[in-house]
């Protein structure tokens, strides 16, 4: 899989890898991609894809307000919070 660029894909996946990890995971993923390439042998002409074994469509509920998690409980696991909000680094200077 010469076109598999681990550095680029890890960036897309928002995972920081050390150079050692890039080397090791890159080799292992190369082997796995080599194995899954065997699907190219299968004739899938005219076959519809399956996303779910039993697709249910338009699953809705009545449009009624129901209870939800209280504010403080929703924030209880936050790594950083202030003023009832999640705290993140600045996006715009």
């Amino acid at each position: 899989m010469s076109d598999f660029n681990i550095h680029y894909v890890a960036k897309l996946a928002r995972i920081e890898l050390s150079p050692d990890e890039e080397t090791k995971l890159g080799t292992q993923l190369g082997n796995i991609l080599g194995y899954i390439a065997k699907l190219k042998e299968v004739d899938v002409t005219g076959v519809e894809p399956t996303a779910h074994a039993f697709p249910l469509v338009n699953v809705t509920r009545p449009d009624e307000a129901t209870g939800s998690l209280p504010h403080d409980e929703a924030l209880a696991n936050a790594p950083a919070k202030a003023g009832g909000l999640f705290v993140m680094p600045k996006i715009v200077e």
Partner: peptide, 22 residues
Amino acid sequence: NAKTRGAGFGAEVKRRIILGTY
């Protein structure tokens, strides 16, 4: 995000997320 996920996930989870992303 990237630093948290880099430090928080183990090797197998990273392999699968990267494979899935690809």
